[in-house]
Design a protein around this nucleic acid. Structure first.
Lengths: 223, 223
DNA sequence: CAGTGTGAACCACTTCACAGCC
DNA sequence: GGCTGTGAAGTGGTTCACACTG
């Protein structure tokens, strides 16, 4: 029997991408003092359809009560467990420009599952300066601090020009999950996961849709 | 005949999401003084497979030369045109905390297609302070400035608590494309596009994969 | 020939419809 | 009775295989 809820197998990527949103929606609901929600209500708060939500949750297990809904606390715990948020992940941020500082100060790190364990900058002159109560470390200390503090997730907030070498240093030090804010595609070994966040990509996509809206209403394209 | 290249019909969302990356890869290639690339080379630079790239480009038109490849300048122009980057979009940023300031200073705005036309903050005490050479405006001026400066794209960089009301103000003023950095799902009319960027979602997804890696090699899940 | 452009096959994800259960 | 959980159908996107052409 694989009744052990800790044994999770092949959750679709699309589902994983939505679980954080469900978690956030649940925390909203909990803040309003509600202890049980239907898939319909929760889906609304998360911006998806209720069938989508139920199908997604079915990949984790059967945590709802038929005819009633989901127990808020319990579901939140199960999603946290599935995402691996029952432990606290130490994160390193490299690049202390405007963005890096904003990220270091970001409260999202504090709430649930993550903390900034070290911050770095290639400019050795910045070493020692405090950012969000942490001293900026020089890149030469990277391998040491990654090991000492058990860092497994790295955030790259450097200019594009140095992003690949920073990435190499992180991977070399043993980091296998990266969040890349630099506008380029990083080359990494197969066992390293990279997620990219690119403001300019997002703006481009918006521009595309905006352009569509301002075009004369061409036949066929009904929107 | 719809030979007019300006007439673009139903480009898949997934393709639109990749076009910005192709544009960036092309600009890299151009910087290296290369004037013609094959789909294979360009795909590598963009982190996709060459068949994917060719299929994507086929939605825009037939801009390659069989047996040769793509003319860099020309392809870049056609992608820019498809994305609507041949005009300059004025953007408003609301919320001048750490993130908002970082975004205002972000050079990605300057390069190609966008410029920061106004910045706002709900804290009236900040009004007049300069951020990236622009004075912070109070929210009461929003409707006026949006109209005067032709702003069609809004960036929300406020805390979650005020994001929905800021969103309402932007929509009310006529903005129909939004980039939301606040951790919540905004409620908007059907004709408004919202894209969300959420750091904590990205971290959660990384944590999920990281957890997978550190689990004992369960049968079946080969990664 | 070398490399593009594309119908066809395949695959992943979403939505539907409803059986199952509290 | 009402809402969850899920096989089945539908949809959109990716990959393949190859015809086509400069």
């Amino acid at each position: 029997m694989s009744a052990d809820p800790a044994i999770r197998r092949d959750i679709p990527d699309a589902t994983v991408a939505r679980l954080p949103e469900y978690l956030r929606a649940l925390s909203d609901v909990a803040d309003r003092g509600i202890s049980s929600v239907s898939s319909e209500e929760l889906a609304q708060a998360a911006g998806v359809r209720s069938t989508q939500l139920r199908k997604d949750l079915s990949h984790l297990g059967s945590y709802g009560i038929r005819g009633v809904g989901y127990e808020v606390e319990h579901l939140a715990l199960e999603i946290s467990r599935a995402l691996g948020l029952t432990q606290d992940w130490p994160v390193a941020i490299v690049g202390m420009g405007n963005l890096g500082r904003a990220l270091a100060a970001y409260s999202g790190f504090a709430t649930g599952g993550f903390h900034v364990a070290a911050v770095f900058d290639e400019d050795a002159a910045l070493a020692g300066a405090l950012v969000a109560d942490l001293p900026i470390s020089p890149m030469t200390d990277l391998a040491l601090l990654v090991r000492e503090r058990g860092i497994t997730i790295g955030v790259i907030a450097t200019p594009a020009a140095s992003a690949q070498s920073v990435c190499n240093a992180l991977v070399e030090a043993g980091v296998r999950s990266l969040l890349n804010f630099a506008p380029l595609v990083l080359v990494v070994p197969d066992d390293v996961d990279v997620r990219r966040v690119d403001l300019s990509t997002e703006l481009h996509v918006l521009a595309f849709h905006e352009q569509r809206k301002s075009l004369p209403p061409e036949l066929g394209v009904a929107r």
